[in-house]
């Protein structure tokens, strides 16, 4: 196992795997480099692959119903993305863009399906690790939802301010 493999197998995705199994997966990974500011995945596209950041930083963002794109998270070395489309065929829910120069490796779903047939126990462990990643993100999502639930007060304040502005500028401006 080379140094890169050792780095990879220490990641959460390979947690609980034998070295030989992790190394087997590493052989099917495709290394890619992205320059800073380059788009890596676009919201709405559908590429069934899991990405692992080996170096650099990426930003996750999503277009809002109105106004500019909303940044959701900053990903860094060791983080993975694309996991939702990886486990279920669906367009990407967000866009990923390189903030710095980024090196990432890509694990295609077809390689994972082969692994499931050849080494089902290993595939099960990888699936479990991906579920961990998803669970962690779901927990973070819960926190956001709580924050959003608290926002009606804030928007009430905004509309209160706008109502006041209208009162003093339109209805009662002499």
């Amino acid at each position: 196992m080379n140094m890169l493999d050792r780095e990879l197998t220490s990641l959460q995705l390979f947690s609980g795997l034998e070295h030989e199994d992790a190394s087997h997966i590493c052989n099917s990974l495709q290394m890619t480099e992205f320059a800073a500011n380059k788009s890596i995945l676009n919201e709405g596209e559908s590429i069934q692959a899991l990405w692992i950041i080996l170096s650099g930083e990426c930003i996750v963002s999503r277009s809002a119903e109105s106004g500019p794109e909303q940044p959701l998270a900053l990903l860094t070395t060791g983080d993975v993305f694309g996991e939702m489309s990886f486990v279920r065929t669906a367009p990407h829910s967000a866009s990923i863009r390189a903030v710095t120069d980024v090196t990432a490796c890509c694990y295609r779903r077809e390689d994972f399906l082969k692994l499931s047939q050849q080494r089902p126990n290993v595939a099960l462990q990888v699936t479990s690790n991906i579920a961990d990643v998803l669970a962690e993100r779901l927990r973070r999502m819960d926190t956001w939802v709580c924050e959003i639930m608290a926002r009606p007060e804030e928007s009430k304040h905004r509309s209160e301010w706008e109502k006041f502005r209208a009162a003093v500028y339109i209805n009662w401006n002499f």
């Binding site: 006041f164 009162a167 003093v168 500028y169 009662w172 401006n173 002499f174």
Partner: peptide, 8 residues
């Protein structure tokens, strides 16, 4: 109204 407009 005047105080309100200044506040806004």
């Amino acid at each position: 109204g005047r105080v309100g407009r200044a506040t806004v």
